[in-house]
Amino acid sequence: MNISRFRRLDRYIVPVLILAGWEAFSRSGALPAALLPAPSTVVWAWADWIFGTDGNTQTYSGHWLLDMAASFSRVLAGFAIATALAVSAGVAIGWSRATEVIIEPTLQILRPIPPVSWIPLAIIWFGIANKPAIFLVFLGAFFPILLNTIHGVKNCDRNLIRAGAMVGGGNRQLLRFIVLPAALPSIFAGLRIGIGSAWMLTVTAEMVAVKSGLGYVLWDSYYFLRYDLVLAAMASIGLLGFLSDLAIRTVMARVLHWQRNTTIQRGGE
């Protein structure tokens, strides 16, 4: 019992030590307090940003929910479009050699272009608003999902397809009842990488091409030398990124529940 209680606590040891050390360092006066705000200062700013406690973040006081929603909706929109297109394109490319020959070379040439380098064109095409951000999120999430889907479809066990043909399955049924379920673990791996890129690109777009959202607050606070708010924005982005990944993992655990006995990892705790 002592051991299991220790196990529950031991995951907090490193974060607590880091925070305590950081707090001590900031208060020691080795650096001007404004350059590296102590965690307590950050929490104070963050609390005001979220709840409007004492108005120390001025125009942002109490605006966190709106800023978060702005970023989150961009991630969601771009990610949803990317998922829909990448999964269907990936299945088509992985399944049919003809489609692969027609589409894949083009995609492979576009892929190495970093999504952020599209920012100028995105602004010219879509203006300064939601659309360029959604476009960038889409670009960032599309390729990891696409590549993983192709990989999953191509790696489908040929023997399972034979078994499906044996019980009388036509091509469409083999795709629907064998190839797609077999590719799901790979597709989910792609989704998890994709959601990471999605947050990265939302924040980037908001720093450059959009006038709202967590990324905008981050950049704006930097101009106003409010590093406590910069850190609070960074923490917010980290938290939301973590939560969206958690959501995908939860769905994945449900959909892929049959995998539980085939993986080595058994949930750690």
């Binding site: 066990d157 023997n159 399972l160 034979r162 078994a163 044996m166 009388g168 399955g169 064998i178 379920p181």
Partner: peptide
């Protein structure tokens, strides 16, 4: 075709389906 049932060297079952769905895979399709 389903007029010829094949039993493979390895069972070749769909790992995501419970046993009864694997047995009834022909009907599922």
């Amino acid at each position: 075709g389903s007029d010829r049932g094949v039993v493979f060297q390895q069972a070749n079952l769909m790992p995501w389906l419970p046993i009864w769905e694997n047995v009834g895979f022909h009907l599922l399709l």
